[in-house]
């Protein structure tokens, strides 16, 4: 029994050690001269811009569904007028960030894992390193910074579209003017709803890029390892997103929501 448990732990610890080394490599190369601006911009486009539609649509539907689901309950409590406020707070604090992050973990983290994994398998990363160039700076730093930068922006977009989705649901069932709805939404939100949520999306973005790069960069040789890298990137990144979410909620409730 013990023998079965210990190797699992050993592997996990070794993996964590490797991740810390990889993280150190990332930070060492961020502040080294010769930042790859054009590659960074290209990655922002690839990663961010091309996910706009997916994130927007999903968030829109989530807002719509959430409003429809909340409505009967609120009517039971005689609190239908609370619907915009409830929607706004839940979307901005939780639904927007987590939906965006999970979608990005599925789309971006796996994409990076597969891309770097196949570069590893076809020896492109080795070729870059052996030529005397710096693959960490060119491939890893640009991607991690691009996700860290773009995921918060995608989340803002998700928040807005989620609220619009909610408005549509309310507008179908009752007659509320858009002006009143958005006024109520914005009035019910304050700084303490927005700031912790925004900060956590930065961490989400970082972990999405980091896990994707780590899994791809360290994948084994052999074509099946490309699929494996993509798959474990999604799983690990998603897990980390929930862990970070739980931690940030704890900290922000200590600080803000008494």
């Amino acid at each position: 029994m013990a023998e079965q448990v210990i190797p699992g732990w050993k592997k996990w610890l070794e993996g964590s050690g490797d991740q810390v080394i990889f993280l150190k490599g990332f930070f060492r190369n961020v502040f080294r001269g010769g930042f790859e601006w054009s590659e960074f911009v290209r990655q922002c486009y690839e990663i961010g811009y091309k996910s706009f539609m997916l994130v927007g649509t999903t968030a829109f539907i989530m807002g719509l569904v959430l409003a429809l689901q909340l409505r009967p309950t609120l009517i039971n409590f005689g609190a239908l007028s609370m619907l915009p406020k409830t929607l706004a707070v839940s979307i901005v604090r939780e639904i927007g960030p987590i939906i965006t992050a999970i979608i990005c973990a599925g789309k971006i983290s796996s994409g990076i894992g597969a891309e770097l994994g196949s570069m590893k398998v076809t020896e492109q990363i080795d070729a870059m390193e052996v030529s005397g160039a710096n693959p960490v700076q060119y491939l890893v730093v640009t991607r991690i910074l691009a996700t860290t930068f773009m995921v918060p922006i995608l989340t803002l977009l998700g928040d807005v579209l989620g609220l619009i989705g909610g408005f549509l649901a309310i507008n179908i069932t009752s007659n509320v003017s858009s002006l009143l709805y958005f006024h109520k939404c914005i009035a019910s939100l304050d700084f303490t709803d927005f700031l912790p949520a925004f900060i956590k999306t930065i961490f989400f973005g970082f972990i999405i890029g980091f896990i994707g790069c780590y899994k791809g960069y360290n994948s084994n040789r052999g074509t099946e390892s490309v699929g494996l890298a993509a798959n474990s990137a999604v799983v690990t990144a998603s897990l980390w997103i929930f862990v970070i979410d739980a931690i940030v909620v704890q900290i922000s409730s200590l600080l803000f929501y008494k």
């Binding site: 570069m119 076809t122 492109q124 080795d126 070729a127 052996v130 030529s131 005397g132």
Partner: peptide, 19 residues
């Protein structure tokens, strides 16, 4: 790195950057 600049390495598959 200095050494690697002076050595060329041709990989079995060519290892072209495919992007």
């Amino acid at each position: 790195k200095q050494l690697r600049i002076r050595i060329g390495f041709l990989f079995q598959g060519g290892a072209l950057y495919d992007s």
